[in-house]
Nucleic acid binder design. Structure first.
Lengths: 254, 254
DNA sequence: TCAGATATACTCAAAGTCAATCAATATCGG
DNA sequence: CCGATATTGATTGACTTTGAGTATATCTGA
């Protein structure tokens, strides 16, 4: 058992967010307490955990935060249903903007067989997904990479988007609220999404029912700025009626 | 038993994700510890495992990926060697342009631990590789996705590149020829690479020896436009002398 | 607040491991 | 055939890792 190996196992054990005790690790890994302490000190130095008396607590980054991959599998069936319905709006020959996000990635997958599409996106995954489709021309906006979402934001992205004219935008969001509008966690993302909205003729908002009522930090636009909302059937009927009354077309995936 | 064969067996043994001990490998493969250590050093350089005191651990993630087989080849080891040498030119705090390509991707990997870098690239893979590095700001050029290489080309890419000023460019190429210059298969890529050249203070051409004498369809620039060429030691000595005479600095990876 | 129980930092010596060098052998290209 | 290059294993001194021992620090419950 090597020191490095031991440290990996310690981290592995903390992945669930639980604290570890020196004595436990000691028996589990079959080394003296001195060695365990040395390991913990080292891992603390790397910023992976915080030591306490008798053991250690995992640090933010060490815990299993929902990665992109995990988010993508969470309620995957619903996302596919929403994506199918949304993709049905697209006619061959159109040009589309696809926002970054797991639902919009599903839309991209649904569009693979289509002919003569132009897709503009600020998401790696979407561009990669469509890059080998003969009937689809993919334009990436460029911009700075936003840490964990792999979305591109910033002036470069905005400028590219400002210079295009798309038939349709498929917009993702973290929060949809009747009063606070469509929201997202960062100003930078909000700015990009606003530019997308300006460059598209029709705005299709895609969001599952869990987004309703949530408010994230930065407002993108009022909900009425969207023309269509595609969501699932657990979407609150009251809110649905209210949105319809305000002129949105609602499409409910089954 | 050839060194290559031995290394393959070592990797074979680590496939399950288990650690290996120098002493064990030593008896199993019937060679001295010195040789085993040399093998492990080499494999570590290629990014296939992590050495520890007494043995080695499989590198997290890499072991079961499809890219694993490719990484185990000799040409990949050469690329890594070139990349290490090239990455050594970079000082913390600089801004770089990284062209799309397998060697430049390796350069990106070598830069992960650096601080305060700005990296501009037209390659997905490079952007993804560096996106989670706290010390590195990644700017993607944007542009159209070129089918199989996943490089971004076209007016959007060129405009983004034209608007930046980088300390260094690491440029890949399909062909390097004394008469025909630096070449690449398509006009679109050539145009992007030319823009990169214009936006950087120092041009570092990275190319293994197989590129010498090859001529691809589109010329990017004469070889003399580069300031430094990083290559491997199988690079033809005559050509090397000729290039040095023309003012290029040659760096030969061992 | 204090005493007793734990947990910790520190030093040290032993065991094991490593890098560097060198000479011997094997292989390659002409 | 010869010189150049690669590969190998032995040797040496230096480095890491380890657990025990000891003095200090921290926690807990009264």
């Amino acid at each position: 058992m090597f020191p490095e190996e031991r440290r990996r196992r310690i981290l592995e054990q903390m992945r669930s967010g639980e604290a570890v005790k020196v004595a436990d690790l000691c028996t589990q890994l079959g080394v003296s307490e001195a060695s365990i302490r040395r390991d913990l000190r080292e891992l603390e130095r790397s910023g992976l955990l915080a030591r306490t008396h008798g053991g250690a607590l995992p640090n933010e980054g060490t815990m299993n935060e929902p990665s992109f991959a995990e988010k993508a599998t969470r309620s995957h069936a619903e996302k596919v249903a929403i994506a199918r319905l949304a993709a049905g709006l697209v006619q061959d020959g159109e040009s589309l903007i696809l926002d970054a996000g797991t639902t919009t990635l599903e839309i991209a997958r649904q569009l693979r067989q289509r002919k003569d599409l132009t897709v503009i996106t600020n998401a790696f995954h979407i561009a990669a997904e469509l890059s080998d489709c003969p009937g689809i021309k993919v334009l990436v906006t460029g911009g700075e990479v936003r840490g964990n979402t792999l979305a591109l934001v910033g002036p470069v992205a905005e400028r590219t988007l400002a210079d295009v004219n798309a038939d349709r935008l498929f917009l993702g969001a973290n929060g949809i609220d009747l009063k606070r509008g469509i929201t997202t966690p960062t100003q930078a993302e909000a700015a990009v999404k606003r530019t997308m909205i300006e460059s598209a003729r029709q705005i299709v908002l895609v969001a599952d029912h869990t987004k309703l009522g949530k408010v994230a930090f930065a407002t993108i636009a009022p909900v009425t700025r969207a023309h269509v909302l595609v969501t699932d059937r657990q979407f609150d009927p009251h809110a649905a009626r209210e949105l319809t009354a305000r002129g949105l077309q609602l499409l409910i995936a089954q």
